[in-house]
């Protein structure tokens, strides 16, 4: 993959994270309720995640646009999406009907669809991270 393509794909990923981050940062109370729907964490943890995760997504999106920060941002993005994929796999396995809240708008998509989306995004982010690392190694 060329550096130019990597840059373009990082911009796309950044846009996705900005979208996901903004809708959640605008209403952390609603996002905390969404997190509770997964029945994995107590309310206080859900509140902490609802306040922190949207800003982590927005800061990561910003870092993806800065070449020096890109590798770290890609690593965070890949880990975030992997975490979401694991979460959706558990949710699907437990047969829980839950509102996603991932990209706002109520997100009434099914767990299997959300899992598939998270797996694709995680695979894409890991691929971009490995490409970025290869380019960095090559330049040294």
């Amino acid at each position: 993959m060329t550096r130019r393509w990597l840059t373009v794909l990082c911009w796309v990923l950044s846009g996705l994270l900005v979208w996901a981050g903004i809708v959640k940062a605008l209403n952390p109370a609603a996002f905390a309720e969404n997190i509770m729907g997964f029945r994995l964490v107590p309310w206080s943890i859900a509140v902490g995640l609802a306040l922190y995760l949207p800003w982590l997504e927005l800061m990561t999106a910003l870092a993806l646009l800065l070449p020096r920060w890109r590798a770290g941002a890609l690593l965070i993005t890949a880990m975030l999406f992997t975490g979401f994929a694991l979460l959706w796999a558990i949710t699907w396995g437990r047969g829980i009907d839950v509102t996603c809240g991932c990209f706002g708008g109520g997100g009434s998509s099914s767990a299997i669809w959300s899992l598939a989306r998270a797996v694709v995004l995680a695979a894409g982010a890991w691929f971009l991270w490995s490409a970025e690392m290869r380019i960095r190694e090559f330049r040294r």
Binding site: A25, P28, L51, W55, L56, L58, A63, I76
Partner: peptide, 22 residues
């Protein structure tokens, strides 16, 4: 750096956001 930078607006949200969860 990114993890710590995200903490700043998150803490501000916890304090000032009109829709902050209790």
């Amino acid at each position: 750096g990114v993890l710590l930078l995200a903490l700043v607006p998150a803490l501000l949200s916890a304090w000032l956001h009109p829709r902050k969860p209790s």
